[in-house]
């Protein structure tokens, strides 16, 4: 019986968690569309997410593009399909690696800092202080971050796509000896708008999820420094897992026929 009780506890705990997250998400989203809006805070969050993540996302993208060119060249040489390198690089970057890698990197950078900041505000009663100063914490803390995440991730992924393709071009032309103009024309040849659009859709969803996990875990953190540390870890891990799950779901919706 003890065994059954413990299963029940885990299930109930999980359901309570899901319920709380759903309620949190609904409240947060409703505050993104209802005035008053905090433009300055939204702009600040957008700069933090979009601008300051450029170096880490750019580095990730350029090396991913480079290694992709190298790997596909040596792999495809086994069946004499080396010519497909440019196409493989651009399709992989725009459809998969751009959004997923940028999402994971930003989850580590932004999700963690959001959870730590909001979590510290929670444990030092700054969130309660907001409420007593007639300011809704959802509006003031959560909504600007959700908006910024959802808008800025597509921007970052657009940049990552271009840099990734450029990385592939460098390896393709300078190491593997492709003709520059034919590499570029090969890049464009099989690329369709939907490849890029699907990637940017993913990016918007991932950006929303990263901000949501950062805010949610921070908002409900408790128990001092240790609690904030746990919230930070949880926000990164849960955002990473959700990114991988939603990556599959969105891919299936776009291309799963």
């Amino acid at each position: 019986m003890e065994f059954l009780a413990s299963i029940g506890r885990v299930v109930l705990g999980f359901l309570a968690h899901v319920g709380r997250l759903t309620a949190f998400t609904a409240t947060a989203v409703s505050h993104t569309v209802r005035p008053p809006f905090f433009y300055r805070l939204t702009l600040k969050a957008m700069i933090e997410i979009g601008y300051y993540s450029l170096p880490v996302v750019g580095l990730t993208a350029i090396f991913s593009g480079m290694v992709l060119a190298l790997q596909s060249y040596t792999g495809f040489a086994r069946f004499s399909a080396e010519g497909a390198v440019a196409t493989v690089v651009v399709l992989s970057m725009t459809r998969e690696l751009g959004p997923v890698l940028a999402g994971l990197m930003v989850a580590g950078r932004i999700g963690a800092s959001m959870a730590a900041e909001i979590g510290t505000m929670r444990v030092t009663e700054q969130i309660d202080a907001l409420v007593t100063l007639s300011t809704n914490p959802f509006k003031y803390l959560v909504a600007p971050r959700l908006i910024a995440g959802t808008l800025m991730l597509p921007f970052l992924v657009g940049v990552a796509d271009i840099i990734g393709v450029f990385g592939g071009y460098i390896v393709g032309v300078y190491k593997l000896g492709f003709n520059p103009s034919s590499y570029i024309s090969r890049t464009w040849e099989y690329l369709e708008p939907l490849d890029v659009i699907s990637g940017l859709t993913k990016a918007a969803v991932f950006g929303f999820l990263i901000s949501l996990m950062g805010c949610y875990n921070g908002y409900y953190s408790k128990g001092g420094a240790q609690g904030v540390g746990k919230a930070t870890t949880n926000s990164v891990v849960s955002a990473a897992i959700l990114i991988l799950i939603f990556n599959y779901i969105i891919t299936a919706l776009y291309f799963g026929k």
Binding site: T124, E125, Q126, D128, A129, V131, T132, S134, N136
Partner: peptide, 21 residues
């Protein structure tokens, strides 16, 4: 929501740890 915000305008609170932003 709104009624509570209006009610809270009557209040000031000094928190234990200060809770300064």
């Amino acid at each position: 929501g709104r009624a509570r915000e209006a009610m809270l305008r009557k209040f000031g609170m000094l928190f234990q740890g200060g809770a300064l932003f």
